[in-house]
């Protein structure tokens, strides 16, 4: 089944004000940067964004925050972003902070047809407030519910016309679970190849989870913390 769309404009058709979006990536690593650029251009407002982080001030989801497009952020870590902090402390932006493993599993559960699950993470903390607690094997766990999205937007290294995806290194992170949890999943890839080119043994996200795929025009791949050691 051919999932290819012409470009980022066509890939994001149907995204409307007030929708819930999942955006893959960890920090600035593996984020769908072409799609974020297009979302800023579209100016869609009142979005709920589910993403592990919120970008930095002038890149990634930070650009959508600057444009005041985000009503609510669901994330695990939101440091490194002054505008985010300002909007959150002033009450303009709703923020739901979730333990990282619970966030990943909630996305996975959403895509896997599991409505909720118990996890020990967050027991006894403010994350557990209002959540059912049950003891398994002598240890208390809290009930966490699945997450889904109107659109899940993920970034992969290589993809084929069937929507099969391969990620590179640590840029995989949240992308595979989010790909599963979108009503419509959009994949932007660095390299789009004909079906049959990728080895089926190496596929990370099977094409069934992807509705639209396109090759991104340009990937800046900004590095947040450039750390090096001296050449010997």
């Amino acid at each position: 089944m051919n999932k290819v769309v012409k470009n980022v404009e066509e890939a994001l058709v149907g995204i409307e004000d007030g929708m819930t979006l999942m955006l893959g990536g960890f920090g600035l690593c593996g984020i769908p940067e072409n799609s974020i650029g297009q979302l800023v251009k579209l100016g869609t407002k009142n979005l709920t964004c589910i993403s592990n982080n919120a970008g930095v001030d002038d890149y990634g989801i930070g650009l959508m925050l600057q444009a005041k497009q985000v009503k609510k952020m669901i994330s695990s870590y939101v440091g490194e972003n002054d505008e985010f902090e300002r909007q959150m402390l002033s009450g303009e932006l709703e923020v739901d902070l979730i333990p990282q493993g619970s966030l990943a599993e909630r996305c996975r559960a959403g895509g896997a047809g599991i409505p909720a699950f118990f996890t020990p993470a967050g027991y006894g903390t403010e994350v557990a407030e209002g959540k059912e607690v049950r003891v398994f094997n002598g240890k208390p766990h809290i009930l966490e519910s699945a997450l889904t999205a109107d659109f899940a937007i993920v970034k992969a290294w290589k993809g084929d016309t069937e929507g099969n995806l391969i990620y590179k290194a640590a840029a995989r992170n949240f992308n595979p679970m989010m790909a599963m949890a979108g009503k419509i999943t959009v994949a932007e890839v660095e390299e789009l190849v004909p079906a049959g080119t990728l080895d089926p043994n190496q596929i990370h996200t099977p094409g069934i989870f992807v509705q639209r795929i396109f090759q991104g025009e340009k990937f800046e791949k900004r590095i947040e913390q450039r750390t090096v050691r001296k050449n010997a």
């Binding site: 939101v78 333990p99 990282q100 619970s102 020990p120 993470a121 967050g122 994350v127």
Partner: peptide
């Protein structure tokens, strides 16, 4: 308020 990242999952398990 930066968020817990993976710390809550790590310490719980």
């Amino acid at each position: 308020v930066k968020g817990m990242g993976g710390a809550m999952d790590l310490v719980a398990s």
